[in-house]
Design a protein around this nucleic acid. Structure first.
Length: 404
DNA sequence: TCTGGGGTCCTAGGACCC
DNA sequence: TCTGGGGTCCTAGGACCC
């Protein structure tokens, strides 16, 4: 059980692809899912046709509209529908491996350690995953396979759309070397420029810095993380049991608001949404957080701990409104207001993930990863160790980045 | 260019306790 | 009368990710 194999699956332009799948008239056209032009907001996802005009996720919608031709399509996201498609995909992936960690609506990691012995080599497992998704929901995905989460994720990103990249342990260094350092996890708009100002641009460049220097530049934790990533060191364990830690709802107004009655109404609505989700999930939070953003984008939060955890709309609202009123923010124009709850007793989640010692251990979710290895061991027991092929090494699966 | 919405995680200061 | 050192909790801000 030494060499581990992690697969990362990333659906291509997920929201936009679903819309094009369901509306043939949108196929082949630049399509943007996100805000409507002329209003405040950004691009959530756009089709590959739109990307040719330089449009990207998180770009202000006004900028996207400036770049795109007349025939472009703009749609508001239909999160519920995308969530259903996501669920179909995740369920299908469970048939491939019992250990599936859903990262977001369009992304998942699978632990496929040892499966080469059953299904075929890494590349053929990847092809099966793509085929499975295509058969189930008619969408394409980019797949990366590597010895840990980081390499698998970078590999899925390497060739898009509809890509498949396998990076074996002995290829990791060569794979990482030329990649821009901005691809490393945690190097965003603030910390990437810190390294770039030192004249670094690729992962190979980052490796020239000592651990001490990286810590000095980025802080102890972030520095250590980047030091390790640059050497291909990362976790190879999946967490298929993660539970959420907060629930929130916020609203950006089309025009900045000064009337407290409107802010109050907005918070009231947010509290109802948050309370509803909390009750659906049988959660009660003991921390209520108010979030407010003024004209000019300066953002503040205020939070208050409750003596008793709650999921009641009225109490969530009342607490947030008191937090608002305890400040003298009155005459500043408000761009965004929202609230959230968090701080539930982790014991409930913990209880749910523990095996029931009096039940069938095979049915306990926490035991799934073990079960995978038991299954593999049983197979090797039946057919003999020599019948089982250990991880085959593919030749260079060199790929051209389309960078589209 | 003028910046959504839903999250997670880290940092840092102050309170409080031993 | 001045003052330690560590641990934990609370709160606010901010970086980052999808």
């Amino acid at each position: 059980m030494s060499e581990r194999l992690i697969m990362h699956i990333d659906l291509d332009a997920f929201f936009a692809s679903i819309e094009q799948r369901d509306h043939p008239e949108y196929q082949g056209r630049p399509l943007v899912v996100g805000a409507k032009p002329g209003r405040r907001g950004v691009v959530a996802t756009c089709s590959y046709e739109a990307r040719r005009y330089g449009v990207r996720s998180a770009m202000p919608i006004s900028e996207a509209a400036r770049r795109l031709p007349q025939e472009a399509v703009y749609l508001r996201p239909d999160i519920n529908r995308y969530g259903e498609v996501s669920q179909q995909i995740m369920t299908a992936l469970q048939s491939l491996s019992p250990v599936v960690e859903k990262v977001s609506v369009d992304e998942a990691f699978l632990d496929i350690t040892g499966m080469e012995r059953l299904i075929g080599d890494a590349e053929s497992i990847g092809r099966q995953a793509k085929q499975l998704i295509h058969d189930q929901v008619g969408l394409t995905a980019s797949v990366g396979i590597g010895p840990n989460r980081l390499i698998a994720k970078l590999a899925s990103d390497y060739q898009k759309p509809d890509g498949l990249t396998v990076v074996t342990a002995d290829q990791v260094e060569a794979f990482l070397n030329p990649l821009p350092l901005t691809l490393l996890r945690g190097l965003g708009t603030k910390s990437a420029p810190i390294l770039q100002r030192l004249g670094l641009s690729t992962v190979a460049d980052v490796r020239r810095l000592s651990l001490l220097e990286l810590r000095r530049q980025l802080g102890n934790l972030a520095g250590t993380s980047i030091y390790q990533q640059a050497r291909g060191i990362a976790s190879d364990r999946l967490d298929d049991q993660s539970t959420r830690k907060s629930i929130s709802k916020e609203t950006t107004f089309d025009q900045d608001i000064t009337d407290p009655a409107i802010l109050r109404e907005s918070l009231h609505w947010s509290a109802q949404e948050v309370g509803y989700v909390a009750r659906q999930e049988h959660r009660k939070g003991s921390l209520v957080t108010l979030k407010i953003r003024f004209r000019g984008f300066d953002t503040h939060t205020r939070s208050r701990s409750l003596n008793t955890p709650t999921s009641a709309d009225q109490e969530i609202f009342k607490t947030a409104w008191e937090l608002y009123r305890s400040e003298s923010w009155d005459d500043q124009p408000v761009r965004l207001i929202g609230l959230g709850i968090s701080g539930w007793d982790g014991a409930v989640d913990e209880l749910q993930r523990q095996p029931d010692l009096f039940g069938d251990p095979a049915l306990q979710t926490g035991a799934r990863q073990d079960r995978l290895y038991q299954t593999l061991d049983e197979v090797s027991g039946k057919f003999g160790k020599h019948a089982i092929r250990l991880g085959s090494k593919r030749g260079d699966s060199k790929t051209e980045s389309e960078s589209e």
